[in-house]
């Protein structure tokens, strides 16, 4: 056991950190800067980070869940308004069924509450499906029932964007949208594959949440050092210090369990990977909401304005929290894994 990042993983983290520090928005106003956002998209594509889960020669992904998590954490920390979760999850689905990588930008579709992948029965999607992390995407992958498993298909996406997260748009899929089967699939998606794929999605969102929390702690400590009241920096008041200390601790605990989830994706059996990821997701989701709420509180009135980054952090955390299930769904999976829960349906 040695859970420190390898030298290569540290290099990857540093590279992601550089891109984030150079191209991510530092104020709410900068989200509208299309030139900056375009450069960020281009940098992420050029770095090859969207291909981490495409297949290498032996069919395994180029990079493990750990590398994906390393990049995801940095993007979350920097509130990167670029696609990563969606394309990464789509690439992993294609890899699992042995299809070739997408040649147009692609993401995945989830149920309306974001907790489940979309299963298109009868060749069309039902009500309320949404494509997540859909910036630039022209299609989204769904599952098609096939015997005991699934194959994959795609639906075309329109351009209407909504959603809680200002950095990663969600596109609702019209009910009845036609699904076209992806060409060249070599094997169906089995139960173990699907568990592992969900584990990846949970691990990526956990890493994103850890990044958001670390970003929130940094931004908020900076503010607490500079804002003065009663003739003193507000960061010198014990009540404020304790909120920030708790936020820091929550981020560290989350980082530890999220790291394990990222490792488990490729190192454990599907069900064990899913259990590890579920525990991490429940923990990180609860922690991230609380940390972002602290960020708003410590910023005072400004924290409640559109122009303050605190709500952008919270919004991103709320979306990441719900993808493939938030607190409730994941606690249920933890109980089920210990033999004392129900079943969450699709396994």
């Amino acid at each position: 056991m040695d859970v420190r990042l390898s030298p290569e993983q540290v290099m990857l983290r540093d590279a992601a950190r550089q891109v984030v520090d150079r191209l991510c928005p530092r104020t709410v106003g900068e989200f509208d800067d299309a030139e900056r956002a375009g450069k960020l998209d281009a940098a992420v594509v050029a770095s090859g980070w969207l291909e981490l889960r495409t297949a290498s020669d032996d069919g395994r992904p180029w990079a493990t869940g750990v590398e994906v998590a390393v990049v995801a954490e940095e993007l979350g920390r920097g509130l990167a308004d670029t696609a990563f979760l969606g394309p990464t999850m789509a690439a992993d689905l294609r890899r699992l069924v042995g299809a070739s990588p997408a040649n147009t930008p692609e993401t995945i579709a989830l149920s309306a509450d974001l907790s489940q992948p979309v299963v298109a029965r009868g060749g069309a999607v039902g009500r309320g499906a949404v494509a997540v992390d859909a910036r630039g995407a022209t299609s989204a992958l769904v599952l098609l029932p096939d015997g005991d498993g699934y194959t994959i298909g795609a639906i075309a996406l329109g351009s209407v964007t909504t959603g809680v997260d200002l950095t990663r748009p969600v596109v609702s899929c019209p009910p009845g949208a036609a699904v076209s089967r992806i060409e060249g699939q070599r094997r169906p998606l089995g139960v173990d594959d699907l568990s592992r794929w969900r584990a990846l999605g949970l691990a990526v969102t956990c890493a994103d949440l850890v990044g958001v929390m670390r970003g929130a702690v940094t931004v908020t400590c900076d503010y607490a050092r500079s804002r003065r009241q009663y003739g003193a920096a507000i960061g010198s008041f014990q009540a404020v210090q304790h909120l920030l200390a708790d936020a820091y601790v929550a981020a560290e605990g989350s980082a530890s369990i999220a790291l394990h989830a990222g490792w488990a994706v490729d190192a454990l059996d599907g069900p064990d990977a899913l259990e590890a990821a579920s525990a991490a997701k429940a923990y990180c989701t609860r922690a991230a909401r609380s940390v972002c709420e602290t960020a708003i509180q410590v910023h005072g009135g400004i924290g409640n304005t559109w122009e303050c980054l605190a709500h952008v952090l919270l919004r991103r955390a709320l979306l990441s929290g719900e993808v493939l299930g938030g607190v409730g769904a994941n606690l249920a999976r933890v109980l089920a894994a210990h033999g004392i829960g129900g079943d969450d349906g699709l396994r």
Binding site: S254, A276, L331
Partner: peptide
Amino acid sequence: AWALVEADMLRCH
């Protein structure tokens, strides 16, 4: 479930 998750977090930490 929370106790299980917390205990797991500490093991990882």
